[in-house]
Simulated assay, not measured.
Amino acid sequence: MTTDMPARMLRLLSLLQTRREWSGHELADRLGVTGRTVRRDIDRLRELGYPVEATTGHAGGYRLASGTAMPPLLLDDDEAVAITVALRTAAGGLGGIEETALRALAKLEQVLPTRLRAQVTALQEATSTITWESRGPRADAATLALLAAACRDHEIITFDYTPREGTRASRRVEPHGLVASGGLWYLLAYDTERDDWRIYRLDRLTAPSPTGRRVPPRTLPDPGPDPASYVAAKIATAPARYRAIATVHAPADTIRARTWALATRIQPLDDTTCTVDCSADTLPRIAQTLATLDTDYTLDADPAVIDYLRTTYQRSLQAVDGPRHN
């Protein structure tokens, strides 16, 4: 039982910040106090400016709502270090967040305890980052935050989506998880109108809007069990614009360690040979994957892929041998 009131209120605030909603009974059990004490402490938090809302339902409860200003957050040591390091390395694959991350980092470092500042400083001194200018699609940070909240709260959302074919349509889904892969962000969700699981690229998703309707979470079907595994398996089998299958003269395990191709796209034929599905929506991506194989292979591919590789090969020869004159 927590008898010291300031310590108890800090513990109560920490609990409210870790979950979307708590019942009064759950909070009383966690704090080892009565429901009446919980109600008094909730009132004290409100007086300090924390927007704690009472929720309706069978037993009633409490949640920390958004307010006109964000009150201080309570972070344990590991959380503070993790957030600081994450802010230092933000924000690959996200647009419009770099300056915001620096402002947040300055505020956080200002209040870090000395013992944690030393840990963060050691990490900073031992770590360096190479920043590449990304020419690919970048996910919008505000969209990512909205979708993450919807996944957490199991709240149905709507949005407009433009698939590769280019025909935009409205979607209504139950969001399940977000997955980052190869510089892209994906939303894994259950499409209520199609009655099936779907994967959406965030750079093709616009106008996301929460509906306010929360639903029980669904269980992923095979090949689950987690969003990353499910998305990886589906991407590996999804149709691509350009087909390219390489038969490689090397063991599958060797190629898995050598290339960035998805492991599920590498299939052993025997102990010394495997196939690699290098199919992709862009020709340069296929060429890059083939280059990482670093061994002999034969290729079964679309004519467009063959033409692109021949052109690239001729350019490489010209660069090495110099221009040829008749």
Rank of each mutant, 00 (worst) to 15 (best):
D4G: 14
R11T: 11
L12T: 09
R19V: 06
D29E: 12
V33G: 02
R39P: 03
I42H: 01
L45I: 12
G49N: 11
G57D: 08
Y62H: 08
A65T: 11
L75C: 06
D77I: 04
D78K: 02
A90C: 13
A91D: 12
E99W: 13
K107A: 05
L108G: 04
T114H: 00
L116Y: 11
Q119D: 13
V120D: 03
E125Y: 10
T127F: 14
A145E: 14
I157M: 09
Y161F: 08
Y161A: 10
R164I: 15
R168G: 13
V173H: 00
L178W: 07
G182R: 10
L188A: 08
A189N: 09
D195M: 01
T206C: 01
T211S: 04
P217M: 06
T219L: 04
P221N: 09
P221W: 12
S229I: 02
T237H: 00
A257T: 12
A263I: 05
T264G: 07
L269N: 01
D270C: 11
D270W: 05
T273Q: 06
S279W: 06
D281Q: 08
D281G: 05
I286T: 08
T289S: 09
A291E: 08
T298L: 07
V305W: 08
Q314M: 14
Q314I: 07
S316V: 10
Q318M: 13
A319P: 07
D321C: 07
